[in-house]
């Protein structure tokens, strides 16, 4: 077996072990294929904000008003969030609350920073491991931005890559600058 096929072998074993159970992959398989409303899959992993790197200009933060407050759904990075804002749950926009861990798979969108007028790639990583937070439920889907929420409706669990699959809250991590605002079409 080549290295290229190793993941697939492991997957086949898993599927066999979990036969009958609706696993993430089984669901994803169905989901990704299904449907006329082809969903968008803008997702990215947990890459943090480059506290140490000066190579990508950091977005402006700390300005006044709800758009500058990570504890508000109006926070600029929350423009495509669907979930509980971690800043209200004992964490911050970039760190998971104690007792939870960041999911390795995630989804990505773009938001415009009102302070500098630039678009940024935002990764909405889920924090997993404790029952859902319940505070600051945010569900913004602004303007013509495409619908990033299909996967929740469709029951995909983005905590699948984490040790615990219980969803607690969502981060809003800047992973880069966007040259084009979403949507693509």
């Amino acid at each position: 077996m080549t290295r290229l096929d190793a993941w697939w072998e492991e997957r086949a074993r898993r599927l066999a072990r979990n036969a009958g159970r609706r696993t993430f992959l089984a669901r994803m398989g169905t989901l990704l294929v299904g449907g006329t409303a082809l969903p968008l899959l803008p997702v990215a992993r947990a890459y943090g904000e480059g506290k140490k790197s000066a190579r990508v200009p950091a977005p402006a933060e700390g300005f006044d008003g709800p758009a500058g407050d990570p504890k508000r759904c109006e926070y600029w990075r929350h423009c495509a969030i669907d979930g509980f804002a971690c800043a209200c749950c004992g964490g911050s926009a970039t760190t998971c609350p104690p007792g939870t861990e960041v999911s390795p798979v995630t989804w990505v969108g773009t938001c415009r920073n009102p302070a500098d007028g630039k678009d940024y790639l935002i990764s909405y990583n889920d924090c997993c491991g404790k029952a859902f937070c319940g505070r600051c439920p945010c569900n913004r889907n602004e303007g013509e931005r495409p619908d990033y929420h299909w996967y929740r409706n469709n029951d995909i669990n983005w905590c699948a890559g984490a040790r615990s699959q219980v969803y607690n809250c969502s981060l809003a991590v800047v992973i880069g600058q966007a040259t084009e605002a979403q949507p693509e079409k």
Binding site: W7, E10, R11, R14, F24, L25, L41, P42, V43, A44, R45, Y47, P104, V105, T106, W107, V108, G109, T110, L121, S123, A160, G161, I175, G176, A178, Q182
Partner: peptide, 18 residues
């Protein structure tokens, strides 16, 4: 980054089992 990295990682290395 926008369309693939969320699942496959920015480095393209994937996530075991996922």
């Amino acid at each position: 980054l926008l369309h693939c990295s969320g699942c496959h990682g920015a480095d393209g290395r994937g996530v075991p089992g996922v």
